[in-house]
Design a protein around this nucleic acid. Sequence first.
DNA 1: TTCGCTGCGTTCGCAAGGCGAACGAGGCCG
DNA 2: CGGCCTCGTTCGCCTTGCGAACGCAGCGAA
Lengths: 259, 259
Amino acid sequence: MDDQVLQPGDRDYVGALASGLDVLLAFDAEHPRMTLSEVAAKAEMDRAKARRFLLTLHALGFVKRAGRYFELTPKVLQLGYAYQASNQYRPMIQQYLDEITATLGESTSLTVLDGDSAVLVLRATPPQRLMAIQLSVGTRLPAAYSSMGRVQLAQMDDETLDAWLQRQTLQAHTAYSVTHVKALRERILEARQQGYCIVDQELELGLLSVAVPVFAANGELLGAINISTNAVRVDMNTLVSRYLPALQEAAAQIHTYAR
Amino acid sequence: MDDQVLQPGDRDYVGALASGLDVLLAFDAEHPRMTLSEVAAKAEMDRAKARRFLLTLHALGFVKRAGRYFELTPKVLQLGYAYQASNQYRPMIQQYLDEITATLGESTSLTVLDGDSAVLVLRATPPQRLMAIQLSVGTRLPAAYSSMGRVQLAQMDDETLDAWLQRQTLQAHTAYSVTHVKALRERILEARQQGYCIVDQELELGLLSVAVPVFAANGELLGAINISTNAVRVDMNTLVSRYLPALQEAAAQIHTYAR
DNA sequence: TTCGCTGCGTTCGCAAGGCGAACGAGGCCG
DNA sequence: CGGCCTCGTTCGCCTTGCGAACGCAGCGAA
């Protein structure tokens, strides 16, 4: 077995599986219920194809039909469950996130890097704050514009990082967004040197976020933990003098006890 | 389009998709990393077949290979994400769960019924309590032996309920477990009449749980919310006089505002 | 009322592509 | 060193997924 990276349209590539997953992924927050034709359009396949996969997913219990409409069943959560359960440090890290959230009254989360995205894996939210943007587990944030993404990119070696940067075409999200790869690279190197990363409204107006990397005792990078808050409510000084140390303390604890 | 329930080995049934999902589901807490042969054994297919699906999932980014071992990537979380995002009442319900957990210091959760299981959809856990059983989103609990399951079964009409009970072969989990379908039926009818359900260590020794159903303003059953605690720490009186009212209050609020 | 039209879900013959028996490469033991 | 596992991989056969074509409402114009 050679460690050959991928297979695009190879002999062993099972197209039907890819298409089926595309159908599952066609459902999102804006399209929770769709007709066969809508699914076909969203997943970019003809109706006959979409129908086969919808019927199969229906038979397997992953989608249900209400008249002409199809929607997901909670069974799809099972697909992500194995991943969550496979991280042995998950409960410990959750405890630290809960503690920070309880103390500071701010949202915290653990994300891991997957390609160009930082994927939200764990989170803790304060009881109040009804207006907070509700991100759920599985949400993908652009690595380039999130503190968790940048602080994990900072852990790559120069070669890997530069290769990654090469592939990026930066898309500004707000007026604060860094737009040149060169500037982004500087921010990442800064994060590497400092050991933490702050991103100030580059992803969304008003969103201020600080992140640090977390390591297991054996040095393995487990991901990044962060605190997200509102730029109007919290100033940069509080963020650095109060919030950052809480994150660093948690990361240190995890590093010590995650073995 | 007739509302025909399922398709087992039908013309339109895409076996490849089913097999691919089986491979994904082969990974669990006890088997987070597996070789090709292990996956094949776990998913009950020959090695060649398992290999095709693993390579395809690898190409799609859902699994990664570390030498001879395969493991899931965080991308699988995306599959469950759409379901989570599709529930518009999720953030509101989460708030109420967080509140109850903050007030009582106990774990709370929202589950929905899916076949024979109550699937955990949302949860809130108190910051302390390191020993608590960590259930994660997507976990499936037997509907027959969980308070959330029973209180949702109680919402079925008699005919549907009896058909459901017919299909059950009860498997006792502890010495407290109800073992006869007839007795289970009585518990469920009791839950229907009372509007809540308490299950005392029938699923796991020491696990005491109370649940109530939650409805949207239009009367639609959204699921069940529950409080799980330890039978040693909390007595039945506290459960009924303190915990239950908190759940009922939250359910009433949700019923009023979920529109 | 009838007609054509549009958008829907479903059918079915063809060939693309998944199946698994058979293979060969390593590791282990006598 | 040779026999014997167990593993990952190959490749010809035939299953099985593909999509053009179909039929059926619903609707507006004639």
